[in-house]
């Protein structure tokens, strides 16, 4: 896919978002006796976004406004690294309340440092322990930020 096509596709996605915003705002009260309702501002923002994106789409579709060609996405190994980081973050968001902060962060940091960052075992162990158990206690005790404990009874029994 050429870079120009990617830009055009992005413009179409943004146009879709603008249309969705206008449609959603239409369902909200547009104007009341006292003035604009909750739908007024988002509706006009949707219109503004659509107009601006249409101009951008026209710009990138003209031969003079064509974006520079080149690789848009990185090579396979780069994509793999990015995908791995995102998967780790997604898993962290999904499991944090279930496994508790200490275990989830321990696994998250351990994976990122050892598998993605290729750090030695001992560096990984020290950083993951400090970043999970250490941070949990420092944040809870000194900063009044309560991080989640495991909601699985078995894990909770182990103090996780």
């Amino acid at each position: 896919m050429s870079v120009q096509r990617i830009h055009q596709a992005a413009a179409l996605v943004l146009l879709g978002i603008a249309a969705f915003v206008m449609w959603q705002s239409w369902g909200l009260e547009y104007y009341t006796k006292l003035g604009p309702g909750p739908g007024f501002f988002p509706f006009w923002l949707g219109v503004g976004l659509a107009a601006l994106v249409a101009v951008w789409l026209a710009q990138v579709s003209r031969p003079a406004g064509r974006p520079k060609e080149g690789a848009f996405l990185p090579e396979r190994s780069g994509l793999l690294r990015i995908g791995t980081i995102l998967a780790a973050l997604g898993a962290m968001a999904a499991c944090m309340d279930l496994l508790g902060f200490k275990l989830a962060m321990f696994l998250f940091l351990g994976f990122l440092l050892r598998i993605v960052g290729r750090q030695s075992w001992w560096v990984t162990a020290v950083v993951t322990l400090l970043g999970s158990v250490g941070v949990y206690h420092v944040f809870g005790r000194y900063l009044d930020v309560q991080l989640p404990a495991a909601s699985i009874a078995l894990l909770a029994r182990f103090g996780l």
Partner: peptide, 26 residues
């Protein structure tokens, strides 16, 4: 490789602590 892991860990922590919600991490 070490730094980015630590920074990501802090980001997760920062996002979570705003309203104690894993939704913010997502």
């Amino acid at each position: 490789g070490l730094l980015s892991g630590i920074v990501l860990g802090f980001m997760v922590l920062g996002a979570y602590s705003v309203s104690n919600s894993a939704f913010d991490v997502a």
